Simulated assay, not measured.
Amino acid sequence: MKIGLRTIKTALGAVIAMVLAYELKLDYWSTAGIITILSVQNTTRYSFSVAGLRIGATILAFGLAILSFWLLGFNPWAFGLFLLLFIPLAMQLRLQEGIVVSAVLVSHFLLQKSYSWYWLSNEFELMLIGVGVALLFNLFMPSLMAQIKGFQNTAEDELRQILLQMAEQLTGTTDVPTWQHLGALLTVIRKGRNWASRQQDNQLLVENDFYRSYFEMRRNQYEMLRQMQANLDQITLSLKESAPIRELLTETATTLAEPTKVPHLQKSVTKLQKKFDAAPLPTNRAEFESRAHLYLFLLDFETLLTLAGDFYEKVVLTEK
């Protein structure tokens, strides 16, 4: 049986919250522990968001509870009226995170048949202790950078393999599993982006969106690669224009992690496009179609490089 960090934080936080509430001589002190359990979240920023929503929902609930008990007295009908008013209003105000906790706190008014200042203060202190302890524990989140960099390396390995396989297919090889690698690339990009978002949401004072932007750039490149492969599959002839493109694909694969190489690669693509424009017209339909798909392949390849160039220019150079 594996016990995760969140489980440890939840258990320890609940104990501390209950001890604090007990030492402060609050009634229903165990409720503080329950609130802590419900308030420990996966990311630091989301924990702060939930805490604010629950405090707001508690204030709203207390106001509606006082109205309901004043109108109908301390009985189940009054509690039902409170729920009829509170739940839809909380949903409309997007305070649904605090519905259950607030309802539990209001039930204490019903049990005590009072909403005096003492009980209002008691219940609000339980809420503050519960969410406060949860927030304190959620400030300590493990770094996810090792996993994120692992996804980055895997994505670059897949991308490198795809480019080399495309170069191989341009030699006339047909049995190339490029589509399988494209599927693997998409999977690792999605995982990397999710983990990068979690890491970013755990940083309250530091704004560093590098990895989330990185995986977004790779996601856009994936779409270009899909279009490139679709055009590549339509090329039925061996064309002389394929040789320099093969060399460029291979060079790109070997310099994938070197931002300074991108401008050089972009210039090489531009030169190839000019050679295409100056080349003699095709002599038959098959050659025309193959050259057209190869030209479209080159255009998408140019876009793929542009995406990388823009990313490194705007994100990497800006951070430096």
Rank of each mutant, 00 (worst) to 15 (best):
E158K: 14
R285F: 14
R193D: 14
F297D: 00
I162V: 01
L85M: 13
A21Y: 06
M228T: 02
M228E: 04
Q200L: 15
E241P: 05
G130D: 13
I189M: 03
V269Q: 07
G80W: 09
L136G: 02
Q92S: 12
F137P: 00
W179T: 11
T187I: 02
L135G: 01
T173A: 09
F109C: 02
K274Q: 14
T43V: 04
F62M: 08
T318M: 11
L186V: 06
F86C: 01
L81A: 13
E125D: 10
Q227T: 12
I99G: 01
Q180H: 09
W179G: 03
V106Q: 04
S238Y: 04
A21C: 05
K274C: 08
K113E: 13
A103M: 06
Y46K: 14
A17M: 06
P142H: 11
G98K: 02
Q161E: 06
V100M: 04
R212A: 14
W119H: 11
V106P: 01
P142S: 10
V262A: 10
L71G: 00
W195P: 02
L85E: 03
A184F: 05
I148W: 03
Q273M: 13
A17I: 08
V19G: 08
K267V: 07
A230H: 09
L307C: 04
H264L: 08
E207V: 10
N202C: 15
L305A: 03
I148Q: 00
S116P: 11
L60C: 09
N194Q: 15
L185E: 01
W119N: 08
V100E: 05
N194R: 15
S242I: 04
L163C: 00
A243Q: 09
G56Q: 15
V100C: 04
Q221K: 05
L299E: 14
T252A: 02
W195T: 12
H264M: 10
M127A: 08
A57D: 09
K240A: 15
K9T: 00
N231P: 04
F86A: 04
F311M: 03
W70T: 10
R291Y: 06
F74K: 15
A90M: 06
L182P: 00
E313S: 07
E216F: 13
W179A: 10
L53I: 06
V131S: 03
A78H: 10
H108N: 02
G172M: 07
L248N: 02
E23Y: 12
I34Y: 12
V40I: 11
L164S: 03
A253N: 00
S68H: 06
Q180R: 10
V101H: 08
I16V: 10
N208E: 13
